[in-house]
Design a protein around this nucleic acid. Sequence first.
DNA 1: GTAATAGTGTCTTTCAGACAGTATGAC
DNA 2: GTCATACTGTCTGAAAGACACTATTAC
Lengths: 322, 322
Amino acid sequence: MAASDINIGLNAVIMAVTGGAPRVLTVHKGVLSEYAPTEIRPTALPFGPFEPNRHRTLELGLREWVKEQTGLSLGYVEQLYTFGDRNRDPRERADGSRVVSIGYLALVRENSPFRTKDAEWVNCYDFLPWEDWRKGRPPLLDQFIFPALEKWIMSEPVEQTQRAERASIAFATTDSRWDIERVLDRYELLYEAGLVVEANRDAVLKKNEVGVGRSFALDHRRMLATALARVRGKIKYRPLVFELLAPTFTLLKLQNVVEALSGVGLHKQNFRRLVTNNRLVEQTGNIDTKSRGRPAALFQFRRDAVRERSQPGVGLPVRQSP
Amino acid sequence: MAASDINIGLNAVIMAVTGGAPRVLTVHKGVLSEYAPTEIRPTALPFGPFEPNRHRTLELGLREWVKEQTGLSLGYVEQLYTFGDRNRDPRERADGSRVVSIGYLALVRENSPFRTKDAEWVNCYDFLPWEDWRKGRPPLLDQFIFPALEKWIMSEPVEQTQRAERASIAFATTDSRWDIERVLDRYELLYEAGLVVEANRDAVLKKNEVGVGRSFALDHRRMLATALARVRGKIKYRPLVFELLAPTFTLLKLQNVVEALSGVGLHKQNFRRLVTNNRLVEQTGNIDTKSRGRPAALFQFRRDAVRERSQPGVGLPVRQSP
DNA sequence: GTAATAGTGTCTTTCAGACAGTATGAC
DNA sequence: GTCATACTGTCTGAAAGACACTATTAC
């Protein structure tokens, strides 16, 4: 047993919704220089090593690193997943130590102050472009992903059936509908099919350098996919959205945030009826003046909804026609 | 940064439903002798250290340890949570190293073969007796827990409101209904209120030794609570139950397993209608002979349900009257 | 007036909750 | 026959999906 060659990394997927898109806070070279080998310095999630002597809990360690690297004080934080596959970090090949990373999801409000020098908000759908269906079915799917997946399915006669089955479930290629929550399934399928660059980066041979979506350091895109899957699932039964909104908001604003996260357009009237009938929000009595048309009433989250309802989340009445 | 003083532990909450109760596989002294200090050897979850040189992934490491300690070959496994609070393992106080443990949930079938010498199935509700409402509201709640919680709420005037709010949500003390999924909330509240023995064991001072429910090593009861919460939530939207059942089963058997896990009685006719109308199961054409009354049709899980439905789980039509 | 967004009302269908009643075995 | 369990049918009310319509602002 060799305890000496384990490192624990703490990674934060920090999300906000700004300008109609879900964004993730990224850091670049400079902050990474101490921990990453010089040759690899793409966009990365904020991260730092867990230091047992300094950090009383894992989450406190994460908050400290994020504060230090981005100047951001986190509010809502939850643990996502712990990643420990061999060679998920190229440093392992160099010095033989194993890096196990604990991924966290954090949600912050649009205008949370942070240091612009080291950190930057990036649209989540730059990394996962096939996940945004708000303007209809992404052309990328039919133009690139499906043909490539088909090729991958056919390339291995023994696994053909199983691969087709997985693709069918994840990407709704046959009868089933697009399931907004299967973000991780889809990413993993694309990874296995070699359709994202990091799949080839991790392999010893660099077969081809093409790939779909913007790349992330190490397995950070997988962490982002894990985070988005979690948010999309949890939004329905926990009041997560309100961590991303100002204390008061219009119903349209609320809807737009939910749409940005879920990646689908929602039916306006039914959405409004759901959140108000559920008594998830209540009017503040004030009016929003900045809107273009008729001024909208301002709402706020009803904290009592948590006690009253066992699953206090927003419904997702998907709009069928564009 | 001191990498040398981190250990990663792998813990398995292995569940099965036998004899009408959800059970967890436990190990005792002997297997633990190498890793636990001699003075503490109560019931424990199977666990072992993650060994970077031996284990390609965390999950494979876990499977290996479980196989070695209990003789059980795991099927369905999912990661639960990573626990890293300071002093969650008393060994930390002794040698100064930090133990971070990754908890896993595994589901196995009733008759899965294992070594009886080292391992033993224990009713989950021995550890969490307030969670079993199948025979009505547990008397323990009114007789012991509520009075003790009330005392705890009142003992700190500043936190009084917040504590009362939390207790109200977790234990449904006021208007809200009992929420079967808030297993972890309830355990954590009891822990903070000092009503489970490990709360006092962890503290430096041993104020009192009373506690509700059977005790577990270290923070293993917390892990069990995490696991039960996960199962109860997930059973509604993923076909988890079938990991615990034989390939074919009667609808009553299915209902009993779901009831054991969820800890509530279900409405028979409505339950049957839900699973059959959802096309989650299908008849095999065979008949169960061992039943007492009219022979029941045998069913099997319809794998296609996963592709057809986005949330393929069993509904929980809670029976109101006993 | 138009454009744009806010908000109300209602019809229809689906489905969960509740309950009544019938069927088929062992004894 | 009784007891026990399996299975079928139906009434009701809540809520979601879909759509039509009115309201209030800026210009």
